[in-house]
């Protein structure tokens, strides 16, 4: 029984490690995006406070997310869409792994316990 408990702990700890790493990656990606927004908002606020008008054409390369890749595509729009695609990729990878590898190990273990 002791051996069984230890294996259970090991498997569970392994899953948590993967879950935490993936969560950290997701947080980093999203917060990277939000911090870029926050930095740009800071720049714009500074300009407004200094009494400068924001041109209708936008600030373009003066702020990070305003840089243009083409006429209709700014870095901001592209990164925002990529955050969503990234969330898809992470959830699919995790679900495939957990429902395959991880669940098989748990199954074996609960058979042993019986």
């Amino acid at each position: 029984m002791h051996d069984h408990e230890q294996r259970l702990h090991a498997i569970s700890a392994h899953r948590w490690r993967i879950a935490f790493v993936l969560s950290a990656i997701m947080l980093a990606a999203y917060y990277g995006f939000i911090l870029l927004v926050a930095a740009d908002v800071g720049v714009i606020q500074e300009m407004v406070r200094a009494g400068k008008a924001i041109p209708a054409a936008g600030l373009g390369g003066q702020i990070t997310l305003g840089m243009r890749l083409s006429d209709g595509l700014s870095v901001g729009v592209l990164l925002g869409a990529l955050v969503i695609v990234f969330a898809w990729v992470l959830t699919i990878i995790y679900t495939k792994w957990a429902n395959g590898v991880y669940d098989r190990e748990i199954e074996e273990l609960s058979h042993l316990a019986r």
Binding site: D40, G58, G60, G72, S74
Partner: peptide, 8 residues
């Protein structure tokens, strides 16, 4: 104008 593609 291009500002719609940037943070406001």
């Amino acid at each position: 104008g291009g500002k719609v593609l940037e943070p406001g």
